[in-house]
Simulated scan of single mutants.
Amino acid sequence: MHAPAKHRSFTQLIEFEIEPQQQSALVSALSRQTERLAQHHSGFLSASIQASEDGRRVLNYLQWQTREAGEAAFQAFESGEQDFWQLIRAHQAKTVTFGSFQVLHSLERSPDHGLHCTLVG
Rank of each mutant, 00 (worst) to 15 (best):
M1R: 14
H2P: 15
A3T: 05
P4N: 14
P4R: 14
A5D: 01
A5L: 04
K6R: 14
H7S: 13
H7G: 13
S9M: 01
S9W: 02
F10K: 01
F10C: 04
T11D: 02
Q12L: 06
Q12E: 11
Q12G: 09
Q12K: 05
L13N: 09
E15V: 14
F16K: 02
E17L: 12
E19F: 00
E19I: 08
P20G: 00
Q21C: 06
Q21M: 08
Q23M: 06
S24M: 12
S24A: 15
L26P: 00
L26D: 01
V27K: 09
V27F: 03
S28T: 14
A29Y: 11
A29I: 00
A29L: 12
L30V: 02
L30E: 07
L30G: 11
S31R: 13
R32G: 14
E35Q: 12
L37H: 06
L37Q: 04
A38C: 08
G43R: 04
S46R: 05
S46T: 04
I49S: 07
S52F: 05
G55D: 01
R57Y: 05
N60M: 13
L62A: 03
L62C: 10
Q63N: 08
Q63H: 06
Q65E: 07
Q65Y: 03
Q65N: 02
Q65I: 03
T66K: 05
T66D: 05
R67G: 00
E68M: 10
A69D: 10
G70M: 01
G70D: 03
G70C: 00
E71N: 13
A72R: 11
A73E: 00
F74C: 00
Q75F: 06
F77D: 00
F77V: 02
E78I: 11
S79E: 09
S79H: 10
S79T: 08
E81H: 09
E81S: 14
Q82D: 13
D83H: 08
W85Q: 15
W85H: 15
L87N: 10
I88G: 07
I88D: 08
R89S: 11
R89V: 10
R89N: 13
Q92C: 13
A93H: 01
A93L: 01
K94Q: 15
K94M: 13
T95P: 02
V96N: 07
F101Y: 08
F101R: 03
Q102C: 13
V103M: 03
L104C: 10
H105G: 13
L107E: 15
L107P: 14
E108W: 07
E108I: 04
E108F: 12
S110C: 10
P111F: 04
P111L: 01
D112C: 04
G114M: 12
C117P: 15
T118V: 04
T118G: 07
